[in-house]
Each structure stands twice: as structure tokens, then as C-alpha cells.
Nucleic acid binder design. Structure first.
Lengths: 338, 338
DNA sequence: TGCGCATTGGACAACGTTGTCATGGTGCCA
DNA sequence: TGGCACCATGACAACGTTGTCCAATGCGCA
């Protein structure tokens, strides 16, 4: 049992090849050869070097290696809104997985929907010379990335498209999904359907609203602005929106809003039909089980990362826009009769 | 609208200070001065340099900077089990937050409970010269980190203690928590209580089992090995365990098992009382609402990161072991009568 | 005119590593 | 014994940056 601490004080300096070389009585280059398992080192010498490495706890400095080799840093950057949100952590995990297969590690950062923070994170990642960048945009202006991409750092945008530039983007089919939700509810007899969406500054929010309108039109339901409440949402705004309408059904614009709404409804006598955008754990165990329009976030993350690595592998086609289909999963909450 | 791509082919090289200097007609050092806002550069010269920087899309290479300065790389590493699990992504977010306050960025990696992967990730982070490491151990042997810590990379273990070394650790009070769950159930008249825990190789699993035994003893319930099923768990193993016992109440050992159990129970006529370890979103909206023993993962992440940064700020005290209290949150599922 | 001084710019080394090339020693064969 | 190939090892430069130091220029002032 070893005690891991520096209670003795004085911050030590990490051993370098130079230290190892001195201890082993060889040149730096020989140490390098041993570390890289290059041939041409006498077995006995290698032995001595390895002993010195062990003794000093030497570990090769990857930063210096990257500088010297001028090659990949073996990292990619991932800028998202909030890792603690299961939607984004699902994306993170999938991206991490793909990165691992390609021998890369992942730098993550949460922007909290703050465009400045998104920019700051992205640019700092670039300054660290990540091999590529996956960005879930918080802002609507991404010109700041032009020089980065021009300099060879591929960028893939996920879930929302970039503003004022054209670049690789992976989206989900928000419009079709929201329209499908309306169609589903209409098929169950609903005609007074409320839509609780996120802030209109957020791409997915307006897309889903557009899908809602489209669905209403197709179902012959006149669009009524009073049935729409865009976020950001708190329990109060959700409650107020529901009180304001006589809706028999509600479509919620993302997983956070769905949860807010479920909480509000739990404390209310009203039981409108409900279809949420984004799936969430236990949705099937609620009473009634919550119907959702969803896509596995892992698919988004995977698609984005694979697109990124295709670029890193030399894909020079014009920017792609991938739109992943969503799936309506009826579970009960959308079938409640008016 | 700019198209961000390299459709023209040929991977470009990033501009360096040397390129900027050539374009601006000055020496490299002058560029450095401008970039670092050092005094002693004629305004007009600085202007030229800035123009060149802009034109070339130059961004200072942080790797080279760190090498030269020999200082901090401005990163910390976080090795966890699975970012997609809300418990760990909560820790991640909190650690990220603290890191941000200290001007650091976070490298994350999921070990998937694989000790080799944990080791690989940790050592690679060290090779990248992270300023510190936060590890949620998958394995039980951590001697491999001794040289790293001796070389000045502080390491903090979270949620589970390290094996065969003594180091900074942040845990939760698993024993007390599990015992409290038993006490709670006993107070509601239960004496046949099952415990579904994770694999006994996992520290928290055995601790919680110990707490379970302690709680039984205190409540005067004879401990019965047949009431215990340790994981890993699937829907089948959970169902089998429940079928095998005549338990009127169940304690589940972590958030995954709780969810598995809820699913199994949803398809069953039995409605045992239930107390889960770890809170989870919507636990309060299930029917009945699920009682839990829990701690906000953010508190764990925050405590760990703060301990790490205390070390980085020069704290040389002997290794600390912080045990955070857990809280029993009765919500209904634990009150079901036998 | 000569001197000191402030201002501005540049040469050079170094961070830790590896690629290129050179060197010294050994063994083999004619 | 001379020539040669080969093995093991090392010297040096370079990656991109900054810290240290020195040089050149221009100014004020005696």
C-alpha cells in the first residue's frame, strides 16, 4: 500500500528523456529508440534504459511529440450545450466511442446556450490543435470558424446548423417529426393542440414549430397563435400556457419541456394528451406512458463523428448536410381522448 | 455566407508566427510581442502584424506554448465509467464547472468498468501532461499511478476508493444510506426485504450490501442470503431474483438496477415497496413515486474537483478522504404496506 | 559634437521529442 | 592484414513558441 501524495512538499519536475539518458549513461537518442521500440539497441543497453525509465517514472510528453512530429494531436473537441442533459451526454458518449476507434481522445465543453462561450471553447480547442471539432451551436454566427477550417481543422455541426457559413451538418428531421405528432393527435380526435416550444432563437425550436404548423394544416386544423408558447420555459410559464388554452392535447418541444410539463400536469386535474419531442428514460413507465417523437442521440453523435473522421481521412467532397429521420413512438399519452 | 470546406484539396498547414512574420516583414519575436500584447512595438508595426495574423488565420499553438513555458497545459483529465449515465454526466458537468473557474479544460473518457481501459485512459491523460486527474475507478489496483503522483500530477478518486494505494478520495456514505433504506422499510412494517446490488467487485455495491446487513441487524431482521442478488443485472436476473424471494420490499443498489426493477415490476402483478440508491429524473412522477437514497452527483463532482484544485494550488496535506452524506427521500414507493 | 537614454527590433537558446546523418567499433572474408 | 559491411550509438537540427540579451536608431541635453 503506497501513499500517493506530496506531503514532503516541493513540486517535482517530470522526468524527461534527458534525465533517463543521464541515469542510464546513454544518449537521449538511445532513450528515444528504446521508448519507440526502434531496432538497433543492444539488449543490455535497452535493459538499463528501461530500468531508468521505471526508476524515474518517466512518461513520454505527448505535447512535445506532437510538436516534433508536426502531426495529429490525437484529440477532437466537442462543444455542446450541457453534458448533464442526457440528450447531449448521449451524443458525447457516441462521439467518444467513434473517436476511440480512431485513436483519438475527446475534449468536451458546455456552452450553456451562450454563443460567446461556444466561440471561446471552439477557438481554444483549435488553439490546442484538435484534429477536428464537433459543435452543437449555441449561437447563429460561425464566421469565426472560417480560418480554422481553411487551415485544415474540419468542423461538423450537430443538431442545429451553423449560421452564416456552410459546413458539414448533421440534423434531425424536426419538421416531419413535429408534423407527425400533430397527425397522430388529430387521428385520435384532437383539434385543439397546444405547442410548447423552446426559445425561437434556437433552430430546432422554430423548425419544430414549423412542423407543428404544417401538421395542423395537413389535418385541417386552423393555426392559432394562442396555442403556441415558446420558451425558455419554467414550471410557471408551462402552467400559464396550459391555463391560457383549452387544449385537449399538448406537444412539447424538447425533453426539458416535456419533463416540466409532466410535473405541472401531475399537480393538475387536467390530463391532456401529450406527445414530447426527444425520448427520455422511463417515458414508458409513466402513467400514461409518454408518447414521443425521437431519435437516439447516439445516432446523432455517431453520424457526426463519422463524418468528421471521414474528413480527417481525406474526404474532400463539398459540405454535407445529413438529416436523420425521427420516429414517432406512441405509448399512450398521445392516445388520450379529448 | 462562406462555404467551409477544403474542396480544393491539399491539406493546408497551419500558419505559424514565422509565416506571420514573413508576411508582415518583421521578426518572429515581434509577432510574439504583438500576440502577447507586450509593450515595445511601434503602433504601425503592430498594425501590420495584426493584419497578417488576420489574413493568415493565425492562432497561437498552445502545445508549443506549454512546451516552451514548461507550465501547466491547462487541462485536467476525467476518467469515468460512462458519460451517458446521468449519474456520471452530473459529475462531469460539475467538474467541468469548477475547472472552468480555474481556467482549465476537461478531457473525458469512459472506461466502461474495464480496469485496463481505465488505466489506459489515465496514463494517456498523464502523458498529455494534464494538470490533474479525476478518476472513478473501474479497477482495484492503482499502483500504476504512483509514479504519476510522485511526479506531481495530483489524482482524486471519486465514488469509489482506489485499490492498493492511499490517495485523495471523495465517497458517499453508502453504508449509512443503505441502512437508512432498511430502517425506513422496517418502519413501514417490512421484514422480508430483498437487496438487488451491483457486482460485488464494485466498491459501492459491497458497501451498500454491508449497509443493508447493518440495517437489518438494527431492525432485528435476520439476515438471509437468499434475499440478496448481486449483479451485473439484466431484466432477467432481476425478475429471477424477485421470483425467487417472497420479499415485500426491495432495495436496489444503483440507478440502473432501479430502472431495471421498475420495468420488471411494471409487467408484474407484484408491487413490493421499493427504495432505490441514486436519485433519477422523474422518480417523483412514477406511480408510486420512487423513494431513493441519494446524493446530487454534482456535489460529488464539485467536491472532487475542488480537492484537485486545492492540490494544484499547493495544498500538501496528507491524502484526504471525504465522505459525503446521503439523504433518504421518501416518495411513496417505500411506504407501500406489506 | 558627444553622451546617455529610451524605444524598437532581432538573434539566439531553450522547452522535450524525433528524424537524419555521422562515427566508432566489431567481425568476416579474401 | 586490409577492406568492408554492419551494428550500436550519438551529435545535431527542427517542430512553434517565448525569455534573455544585444544592436540600431533617434532624441534631448550639456
Amino acid at each position: 500500500m503506497t501513499t500517493l501524495s506530496n506531503a514532503h512538499g516541493r513540486l517535482p519536475r517530470r522526468a524527461t528523456m534527458s534525465d533517463v539518458a543521464r541515469l542510464a549513461g546513454v544518449s537521449i537518442k538511445t532513450v528515444s529508440r528504446v521508448v519507440n521500440a526502434e531496432p538497433g539497441v543492444h539488449a543490455e543497453t535497452a535493459e538499463r534504459v528501461l530500468a531508468a525509465i521505471e526508476r524515474l517514472g518517466f512518461r513520454r510528453n505527448i505535447g512535445a511529440l506532437n510538436l516534433r512530429r508536426g502531426s495529429s494531436t490525437g484529440t477532437i473537441g466537442l462543444v455542446l450545450e450541457d453534458v448533464a442533459n442526457p440528450f447531449y451526454s448521449g451524443i458525447t458518449r457516441a462521439a467518444e466511442e467513434v473517436a476511440r476507434r480512431h485513436g483519438r481522445q475527446v475534449l468536451t465543453g458546455s456552452s450553456d446556450e451562450d454563443p460567446d462561450r461556444e466561440r471561446e471553447l471552439s477557438l481554444e480547442f483549435c488553439a490546442r490543435r484538435v484534429d477536428g471539432l464537433i459543435v452543437i451551436p449555441a449561437g447563429t454566427r460561425h464566421g469565426y470558424l472560417v480560418p480554422e477550417i481553411a487551415s485544415g481543422t474540419p468542423v461538423v455541426f450537430v443538431d442545429r446548423p451553423p449560421g452564416d457559413v456552410i459546413a458539414d451538418t448533421v440534423l434531425v428531421d424536426n419538421v416531419t417529426g413535429a408534423a407527425a405528432a400533430v397527425t397522430h393527435l388529430a387521428a385520435h380526435g384532437h383539434s385543439r393542440i397546444a405547442f410548447l416550444g423552446d426559445a425561437p432563437t434556437i433552430f430546432t425550436a422554430t423548425e419544430r414549430l414549423a412542423g407543428f404548423r404544417e401538421g395542423c394544416a395537413r389535418a385541417g386544423i386552423p393555426f392559432d397563435q394562442r396555442m403556441v408558447a415558446m420558451g425558455p420555459h419554467t414550471a410557471e410559464t408551462v402552467a400559464a400556457a396550459l391555463d391560457r388554452t383549452d387544449a385537449t392535447a399538448v406537444i412539447t418541444g424538447n425533453n426539458r419541456i416535456t419533463v416540466q410539463t409532466l410535473r405541472v400536469l401531475a399537480g393538475s386535474a387536467r390530463k391532456p394528451a401529450l406527445v414530447g419531442f426527444d425520448d427520455f428514460e422511463l417515458a414508458d413507465l409513466l402513467d400514461p406512458p409518454v408518447s414521443v417523437v425521437s431519435l437516439d442521440p447516439a445516432e446523432l453523435g455517431k453520424a457526426a463523428a463519422e463524418l468528421l473522421f471521414a474528413r480527417l481521412d481525406g474526404d474532400r467532397e463539398p459540405p454535407r448536410r445529413i438529416v436523420l429521420p425521427v420516429r414517432l413512438t406512441p405509448r399512450g399519452s398521445g392516445e388520450v381522448r379529448p
